[in-house]
Amino acid sequence: MIIYSLVTHRPLVRVWQQRPSAIRLLFFGVVGVALAQFTYLLAIFHGNAAIATIMLSLVPAMITVVTCIRARTAPNLIDTLAIILALFGVFLLVTNGHLTQLHVAPIAIFWGLLAAITGAAYTMLPRPLLRREPPLAIVGWGLIIGALLMNSIAPVWHIPKGLTPWTWAAVFFIVFGATFLAYILYVSSLKVLRPAIASMIGNLEPLTATILSILFLSLGFHTLQLVGIVLVLSAVFMMSRTPKKKR
């Protein structure tokens, strides 16, 4: 951030000088960055990676609902169908079609839903700030706030027991590969790809998590749960095809 500021001569602390911007940035760092990550990993911890990533696929539906409520307009037909499809898909995933029986731990569903809500906050909260400030400054400050908050809860120097060189390698991959490099690869592809295509490719995240969970974590899904996963992913694809002006 400092190098970026020196090279571009863009002020990094300007966002803190106005009270509304500062409050929004603080909120973004706490809710959009720290809580979004924390709730997602809690959903994995209490459930599994497949359930958590599929629940995260509800983010576009959440954003559409919040946008419509704020604009006091009804979602268009495609969005409405996609929201219903996504909710029905999640219903099948967590119940396997049984109204009175859950196939996923309720606590995992709770954290998964919260991860989807905070994931939507990650997209929506910084929007007004990004109109005035460089994205790197907003994301950078958000990460710093999130890192300070999470280190006050669980400092990085409190090393957990049972970490082998392989698990350290996994931690390293999660930080630099699955977060930093993955984000750069995805965002740089958006310069060329249409949002619909990029969003369709984005479905590879829950698909990868589901397939790898079945292969390496011995996770099993019933037929109706698999139908639910397909419905959620179809809903994401439907929403990505909605004309932008109506979103």
Partner: peptide, 21 residues
């Protein structure tokens, strides 16, 4: 990029299963 996100989720799952993290 998106496949790496998915792999990251599964690796987090593995870390929780095999350590006290």
């Amino acid at each position: 990029g998106t496949t790496m996100w998915g792999v990251g989720g599964v690796l987090s799952n593995v870390i929780f299963n095999t350590s006290t993290a």
